[in-house]
């Protein structure tokens, strides 16, 4: 699943470390999610989106037919 985490992070000037602290995961997890290698749980996706004051659909881009 694609996402806009890196783009939103740059926009809000938040580092991966700061975002990882906000949502309570390791920086490695943020790297993995950002690069699309790991799909977060619904709870973590919600927390990441909340950190950017966005909804889940605004941060995570669901691609139909890729499930």
């Amino acid at each position: 699943m694609k996402n806009r985490i890196r783009e939103l992070r740059k926009l809000k000037k938040i580092t991966q470390e700061e975002l990882s602290k906000q949502v309570g995961v390791s920086r490695q997890s943020i790297i993995a999610i950002e690069s699309g290698k790991f799909n977060p749980s619904l709870e973590l996706a919600y927390n990441i989106s909340k950190a950017f004051h966005c909804t889940i659909e605004e941060v995570f881009l669901f691609e139909e037919g890729r499930m």
Binding site: K21, G24, V25, S29, F38, L44
Partner: peptide, 14 residues
């Protein structure tokens, strides 16, 4: 050590 860096998260278990 992992816990100190919030390393015991869902990616770790996955």
């Amino acid at each position: 050590k992992a816990k100190e860096n919030r390393g015991l998260d869902e990616l770790y278990y996955h």
